[in-house]
Design a protein around this nucleic acid. Sequence first.
DNA 1: CTTTCTGTGGCATCCAGTGCCAGAATAGGG
DNA 2: CCCTATTCTGGCACTGGATGCCACAGAAAG
Lengths: 236, 236
Amino acid sequence: MAGERTGGRVATREVVLASVRLFTEDGFDATTMEGIAAATGVSRRSLFRRFGSKEDILFAEHDELFSTVVRYLDASPDDPLSSVFAAARLVLQGYLGDPEITVPRYRLVRAHPRLRDREVAMTARYQAAFSRYLADRQDGGGEERSLAAGVAAASLISAHNHVLRGWLRSPEQDRREVWASFDAAMEFVRRAAEPVLRPADRPSRDRVLVAVYPGDLGRDELIRRVTAAVEESEGA
Amino acid sequence: MAGERTGGRVATREVVLASVRLFTEDGFDATTMEGIAAATGVSRRSLFRRFGSKEDILFAEHDELFSTVVRYLDASPDDPLSSVFAAARLVLQGYLGDPEITVPRYRLVRAHPRLRDREVAMTARYQAAFSRYLADRQDGGGEERSLAAGVAAASLISAHNHVLRGWLRSPEQDRREVWASFDAAMEFVRRAAEPVLRPADRPSRDRVLVAVYPGDLGRDELIRRVTAAVEESEGA
DNA sequence: CTTTCTGTGGCATCCAGTGCCAGAATAGGG
DNA sequence: CCCTATTCTGGCACTGGATGCCACAGAAAG
């Protein structure tokens, strides 16, 4: 039907759009690969060859986006933290720019535990990529380095998904609001991640002091303790 | 074989152990449900009924652990952040306490992408549970509350998994080392999460001071700046 | 002993996913 | 232009996970 036999190969996007329509109309499980084959004009066997599995059809565009983001990251020589923030922005942009697929997919994912797991696996891949990227371009103590990179990546992905879900739940909202909350979320993460992540290429000139103290300590005693702590660390 | 027909129902743990053995010996894909049925004495049909799917056999113990952790969390009236740290400790304890299953499962998961996704989905459930728990018991600005809870949960899970993977890679290492690195990781997360998460029921008595300063600033000037900053914040 | 309820096993069926092979489309070399 | 090599595609058969249906066993309740 949708795939008139004009000789040329049916575009991936065509197949994905038709499949998404079938999934939302009939349900994911009720939609068979044979049905998709009939609707798109691509044979059952070729669908498996090109996409791998039924789920993979739904996430084909997302896989492409992931590849794009990874390539972007590999080509980013800047300040690592900023690069990762920019990469997250790229991901959100990928979602916002393709609501025809991403929005119905979100509805399907919400309803279907199996698809939800698949979606989670995607974000885990982003998280792993970001974590590796950060761990590779940063100095600091060997063990702590990987821990800090992992935590920073996890925070970033979590904040990104927070904003993303907000948009997916009501995609008709103003894009500027979405981007504003994205910037706010990134700023929020930056506050938490920046103290523990220092770039490798730009050797740390800054130092970090963290003090936790009772609120009723009194500033004189606080100053005394801070002074002692700083002198001790500087002496080493 | 393993499941002598003594009348009683074959224990879940028996089935899981036998299945794990088959998975590691023959490979996950090569092991059929019929083979598991033959090895355990439980019929194929009953295996599907009791476990849901082949993957679910491998993660049955883990599902139980998850339920335990969630119940523990629901019954925790303490300081939310501490409760969540304790819950993470419970998860690690669950892994360490059952190496017969968790270690071979880790090897299987590493080798098999599909199982890896399943594992990731498990940790995502923990993260979601922790995030909800934190979001429900904390004050602060409405939008920022859920964001902060999500980021804190993500950081915590990431740090936990960092330690967990370290042990899974070499399970023969001293348990005290594992727990020490766990404590260190939790402390690391606490430093990042505590500034942005304050419990609702027990208003924060402790305060946190974070200062970033040039390494060549000199301690006198540092003390002066810290003093000024503290006085300013206390005055407000 | 009969009834009811729950768990179990056997059977048939559906369908995702894969290996195999034949044919079409495309590219390249003469 | 034709012939050939390569690649992509589609049809076919088959494995195996997963589900619905039904019959039966055992335990609890009457």
